[in-house]
Every structure is written in C-alpha cells, then in structure tokens.
Amino acid sequence: MPGGTGSAPCGRREGQRVEADELLVLVAGGDQKAFEELYGLVAGPVYGLVKRVVRDPAQSEEVSQEVLLELWRSAARFDPGRGSALSWVLTLAHRRAVDRVRSARAAGEREVREARRSHSPAFDQVSEEVEAGLERESVRRCLGRLTDLQRQSVTLAYYDGLTYREVAEQLSLPLGTVKTRMRDGLTRLRACLGGVA
C-alpha cells in the first residue's frame, strides 16, 4: 500500500486538505489524473485506519482497495460544505472496515451454530427409546389382562394386520363373535393403558 503523508508541518497539511478537496471535485468529473494524485494523498491514511479496525494486514489491504474503488465511483457524492475530502474518505473507510468485521463475525457465528446443529441430534434419542420401551411394556402388561380370545383377536388384527373377517377365519369363529371379542378386548386394553383398570 502506498505510504501516507508523513509528518509534514501543519501548513502542509492544510494545503493537502485543500488539494484533496479540489482533487475530489475533479475526480467526481471523471479526471483520472486527479484520482491518481488523490490516491497518493489518501491511500496511507485509509490503510492505517482500516488496519486499526480490521487488524489483519491482508484483509486491511483488500478493504482499503475497496474503499479507494468506491471513492472513484462515488466521488460525486462528496459535499465540500459538509467537511473535508479526507474526512469524507476516512468515513467511507471506517464504515467499510466495520462492515468487514461485522461480516466476519456473523460468518463465524453462523459456522458455530451450524457445527452445533450438525453435532446434536434433532431429538433426544435416549429419551425416545426409553419411552418406546415403556409403552411396549405397558401394552404387553395390558394384553396379559385380556382373555385368550380377546388377546388373539387384537393381536391378529393390530399386529398382523388382518381384517375382522380374516381373524374370524383364522380362529374358526363366527364374524360376530370376533367383532364382540375385539370390541371388549379393545375397551379393556384402552382402560388398562389409560390407567383406569
């Protein structure tokens, strides 16, 4: 990055200020030669400010180049009545540097969140397995309280997926009997699982 203004006496700094203001007005009109001169005046202070905010030299150089490019593109927005060219340029530099730091911080936070999300299960697997085991045990216990015919009917229908007619054929019983046993068995099972019986 080109060097700054050095330690010139105050009168020289004032002259640079006026010179920078005039150069920026010329740059707004598209004068490339004026931009080269302005670049030489402000590149050092821009880099110094950006480096104090961003800290990383490579990123500071990159941000400084972005600022100087923005300076060329937006020189027409400079209003000499609101302050000096150098103040305006340094304000651009500071904003751009702060944006870079915020962007880097946000990216880091997103990476941390994503890493946490990818390492933690979507649900508590242990809790789910324990709960399912307890449910199976409760169903087994409650099935044991049914009569043999009720238990056979419910098991064939719900665990083997048979229809009432298929259950009746399997058990060699009339369909009406199977329906009655199923209804009674399901009522008892529901009561047992609900803690009523």
Results as ranks from 00 to 15, higher is better:
Gln65Gly: 06
Gln65Met: 07
Glu66Ser: 05
Val67Asp: 08
Leu68Gly: 04
Leu68Thr: 13
Leu68Cys: 06
Leu71Cys: 11
Trp72His: 08
Ser74Arg: 15
Ala75Asn: 04
Ala76Glu: 15
Ala76His: 12
Arg77Met: 02
Asp79Lys: 06
Asp79Tyr: 04
Gly81Pro: 01
Arg82Met: 02
Gly83Cys: 11
Gly83Leu: 13
Trp88Asp: 02
Val89Tyr: 01
Ala93Glu: 05
Arg96Pro: 08
Ala97Lys: 08
Ala97His: 06
Ala97Glu: 06
Ala97Ile: 11
Val98Phe: 00
Asp99Thr: 05
Val101Ala: 10
Val101Leu: 02
Ala104Leu: 13
Ala107Ile: 08
Glu111Tyr: 00
Glu114Gln: 14
Glu114Trp: 01
Glu114Lys: 09
Glu114His: 05
Ser118Glu: 14
Ser120Gly: 01
Pro121Leu: 02
Ala122Leu: 14
Ser127Asp: 12
Glu128Cys: 08
Glu128Ser: 13
Glu129Met: 09
Val130Ser: 03
Glu131Cys: 04
Glu137Ile: 00
Ser138Phe: 02
Val139Thr: 04
Arg140His: 13
Cys142His: 07
Arg145Trp: 03
Arg145Gln: 15
Asp148Gln: 14
Leu149Gly: 05
Gln150Asn: 09
Gln152Cys: 03
Gln152Ile: 02
Gln152Asp: 14
Gln152Glu: 15
Gln152His: 12
Thr155Pro: 00
Tyr159Gln: 12
Leu162Met: 15
Tyr164Ile: 13
Tyr164Lys: 12
Arg165Thr: 12
Ala168Leu: 01
Glu169Ala: 15
Leu171Ile: 06
Ser172Val: 04
Ser172Leu: 11
Leu173Arg: 15
Thr180Ser: 14
